[in-house]
Amino acid sequence: MGLDTEAVTGWIAGLGIDFTGPLSFDRIGLGQSNLTYLVRDQDGNRWVLRRPPLGHLLASAHDVAREARILSALESTDVPSPRVFGLTEDPAVTEVPLLLMEFVDGEVVDRMPLAEALSEDRRRAIGISLAQTLAKIHAVDLEQAGLDDLASHKPYAARQLKRWGGQWEQSKTRECPDLDDLTRRLIAAQPAHTETTLVHGDFHLRNVITSAESGEVVAALDWELCTLGDPLADVGSLLAYWPAAGEDTGGDFPASALPGFPSREEISRIYLEATGRDPAALKFWHTLGLWKIAVIAEGVMRRARDEPQNAAESGTPTVERIDALVAKAREIADQAGI
């Protein structure tokens, strides 16, 4: 689906990669944005291929070529990430950009049975490593990595509110007065912009590969939303994806509510101790993280409705899940005086 496998096989051969054909291409992962495929040869060698989703795309979204640039730059840093083998936009091979990268062995904890099978010690190790990996991402020297011009250095909150507010208007399937009210409140409460770092943009448990032995993050994935901005935005996003027991924002994946996984408070503390950053704006970024996930989920729901082949095997977000995210965001905003 979405690939001319014969043309792609020829392109891979042209990269100088040795393989025993024919290659197989299987859709993997639960991601519902860029499509991801496991590529295998007859000897069991593996690679990963990425392409944008099918159908109409919003401007600037799903930029696989940009993701390739970021991953290539990260190869010289401490950030765990897969190595890039090639990128093509050749119309003889593909109608959209294709990115071929390293297959990193490990475990993606993206389903509840996988999370439930982990020991409590392993769950705790994964949670701690998530916070530590964010600290590594935010420590990247932008000039040395060649990423200083990746995005604007203007205040990040304003950029995020403009971008995702615009995405909501383009992709919404209904009116949602509570989200509109939250957008207005966030615009009025923007914190001062004091620091610019690399920002992953969508960092959470399902977007990392962890060691099957130690639980340590061995690769951070899905860099398509990566930009330059306020590092606490990534922390807020991780907290937004980290429901506690009894909360209903996790949809089909409330893994962080299982015993052993650190609490949101502990994850924040580990990150702040590693970086020395001021937590004053963290509740703003937690609120914005929930708001942003709700906007993204609405877009996923819209794309799956318009083009059913984009839907991942886990299904698509529901109106009820999106409304729960908005309600939780409003709750955090109330606590913070936003």
Rank of each mutant, 00 (worst) to 15 (best):
D234K: 07
T196K: 03
V79H: 09
D334A: 15
W47A: 05
W242P: 15
E67Q: 13
A192H: 13
W285D: 07
W168E: 06
V93Q: 04
T249G: 08
D148F: 03
S60A: 14
W164D: 01
E95A: 15
D90H: 03
P155T: 01
L238Y: 01
D78F: 02
K162D: 08
R46Y: 07
T88F: 08
Y37L: 06
G21M: 09
A312I: 03
G337P: 03
T20I: 07
E75W: 12
E169K: 13
D141F: 02
V140R: 00
A139K: 06
E175K: 13
R40N: 14
G10C: 06
L258R: 12
V319K: 14
R159L: 08
R163C: 05
T5Y: 06
T94C: 14
T194F: 11
E266L: 11
Y37H: 13
Y241V: 02
T275V: 11
H286A: 07
T194K: 15
V8N: 13
L35T: 15
E273A: 15
G289R: 13
A117Q: 01
D234V: 07
A327L: 04
L238C: 01
A68N: 11
L272K: 14
V96D: 05
P259D: 03
L232R: 06
L221F: 06
A117W: 00
L99A: 04
L58R: 04
A7T: 02
T194W: 04
I126H: 04
A145V: 06
F261N: 14
G10L: 03
G299C: 01
G289C: 12
V140C: 00
H56E: 15
Y241N: 12
T196E: 00
D78A: 06
I187Q: 08
L272C: 10
V79A: 04
V218R: 12
D105I: 01
E107Q: 14
S152F: 01
G14P: 11
W285N: 11
S119P: 00
L87E: 02
R174E: 10
T287A: 12
P243T: 07
A212T: 15
D230L: 10
A7N: 06
Q32Y: 10
W47T: 09
G106Y: 04
A336E: 06
T249I: 15
G246T: 04
K328S: 08
E169A: 09
L288Y: 15
S33N: 12
A65N: 10
V319G: 09
R50S: 08
V235R: 11
D43H: 12
R163G: 05
H200W: 09
